[in-house]
Write a protein that binds this DNA or RNA. Structure first.
Lengths: 217, 217
DNA sequence: GTCTATACTTGGATAGAC
DNA sequence: GTCTATCCAAGTATAGAC
């Protein structure tokens, strides 16, 4: 995937025409995946959205699949950064639910999880795509596992639940809720679940015996 | 979607060449959706698997999308029948988890949920497909809601959880777990969750105060 | 580095022979 | 009812001009 053109310094703020085109194509790919799905995200459709020529997809990324993977990379980067800053602000269990809900709304409205879901669904049709997508999903699961581990720390629930298992379930639920919301064009059933989770979190803290605040390291 | 040929009696056991072809095409469509995904389920690919000519897709179903919907109908029919017989055999909460696990394995191994996931993902690329798929998913959610309602009856949890909400979460989790299992080619994380749920069910019944057996009507 | 033009392939869909 | 042949649109990918 090495570029053929002359290299500039790493981290250079100046964007050449090449970098601009690459960015536009990645943005177009994200858009196309969200709005047209995996099978609608063709080189022509993406280039149309990026406002450039179809041939540039192959010049810059070699194939449509590679561009789609670059789009997934970009979405991963954006979201993991956001998640990181969000969990840093978490104080209590009820607080965690509130923050998780606002994050979920962002993901849903911006279509970030759509990109994930479409890419996973698309792996069936392109040989070799599966392992690449799996490698890019792994950080999401790792992040969720770390967050669950922190939240369960010092809680009696920690004896009952393994963080990796809960993280797997959380990612799966996140994916599934997005697909149903996208299908129905209605996110309210998903949001109702967050409200319910908030109620239960409140109940747990009222009952006592369960740690509902997290240590600040 | 009316057929042009002469009609035989409803429920006729004799299969004409026409019915045989239709069945083969539906079976081929299910196979193609599982193995090649939505974008790989073309008329030619499906016809190849059905062992018949590509033109027959359009003769019998009018379009590829209609055939794919017929495939989804068939999967729905098969699974809902199976679910119905399964919940009838449920005695206790721990028993429910065991049965749910075996059902999940069946769904996963036969690729039934793949069909669901691929069709949902595919709705983005075909205008008008969304409402059709949504209408075919509704029975799954209704079934899950009824099962949850029965299971929660006479339990204190019934005050805390709305059946429709839990059902939505269950369907979403089911979908998400399938997608991750399919992606990784590894269903063990999903099965571990069932084991954990079984443990918790056992714990609940040991604690008492929660009804773990269901009335047999 | 970018764009136009083009070769090639696959897919949706129809017409007409059998 | 099925098959062959065919049309047309869309997609991937490359070559070569600018």
């Amino acid at each position: 995937m090495a570029r053929s053109g002359a290299k500039r310094g790493v981290g250079s703020a100046v964007s050449s025409g090449s970098e601009e085109t690459r960015r536009a194509l990645v943005a177009g790919a994200i858009e196309a995946l969200c709005e047209e799905g995996f099978s609608g995200a063709s080189a022509r459709e993406i280039a149309r959205r990026a406002g450039c020529n179809q041939g540039l997809v192959f010049y810059h990324f070699g194939s449509v699949a590679n561009l789609l993977l670059a789009a997934l990379d970009e979405v991963s980067r954006i979201r993991l950064t956001r998640y990181q800053s969000a969990v840093a602000a978490v104080g209590s269990l009820g607080n965690l639910v509130e923050i998780a809900e606002s994050i979920f709304k962002e993901d849903l409205d911006a279509g970030y999880i759509s990109v994930l879901a479409e890419m996973i669904a698309g792996t069936s049709s392109t040989p070799g795509l599966g392992v690449e997508v799996a490698a890019r999903i792994a950080p999401w699961r790792d992040f969720a596992a770390a967050a669950v581990r922190d939240t369960l720390a010092d809680s009696p629930l920690a004896q009952l639940l393994a963080p990796e298992e809960v993280a797997h379930a959380v990612v799966a639920l996140y994916l599934g809720l997005e697909m149903l919301a996208h299908l129905d064009g209605d996110r309210s059933p998903a949001l109702a679940l967050f409200d319910r989770a908030g109620q239960i979190a409140g109940l747990l803290s009222a009952l006592g015996g369960v740690s509902t605040t997290r240590e600040k390291p």
